[in-house]
């Protein structure tokens, strides 16, 4: 729990900014190219969801370090409409916007740990982590 940095997601271009920043941090931590791509893609999905469904929010990054492993923590936070049924949005193909609905279930597969807290009318916080193997 040492270093943390955040990017604001407000306009479409921030999606690209967030994933590029995330990729750079992942590289610095020591992730290989494939994991860098996985992390950047996960960030892209989370940031786009914020942009599309909440309008604005932020993505924060954290360098994780324990005695025996290193990793990255990513937090996608918004004060948007929230989700009524968290279990539904985790189904492959579920989309309220005509998307592929691959986003959230995909993010879960791309990362090692996934947690979602959402309250209707209050907002959503999604936490994901990935560890270096």
């Amino acid at each position: 729990m040492d270093f943390q940095s955040c990017v604001t997601i407000q306009k479409e271009w921030d999606i690209v900014g967030a994933r590029q920043m995330g990729r750079n941090i992942a590289k610095e931590i020591g992730f290989g190219t494939v994991d860098q791509a996985r992390i950047a893609t996960a960030i892209s999905e989370l940031a786009r969801n914020i942009y599309l469904y909440a309008g604005s929010g932020e993505i924060c990054f954290e360098r994780l370090e324990t005695i025996d492993r290193k990793g990255i923590g990513i937090y996608a936070i918004d004060k948007g409409p929230g989700m009524e049924e968290v279990s539904r949005v985790m189904e492959d193909g579920f989309s309220t916007s005509g998307g592929l609905g691959a986003g959230l279930p995909g993010v879960k597969r791309l990362m090692d740990e996934f947690d979602i807290v959402s309250e209707v009318g209050k907002g959503t916080k999604i936490t994901v982590m990935k560890w270096i193997r």
């Binding site: 996985r38 999905e45 492959d92 691959a102």
Partner: peptide
């Protein structure tokens, strides 16, 4: 690899 993880 990432696309397959995404399910695409």
């Amino acid at each position: 690899m990432t696309l397959i993880d995404l399910g695409i």
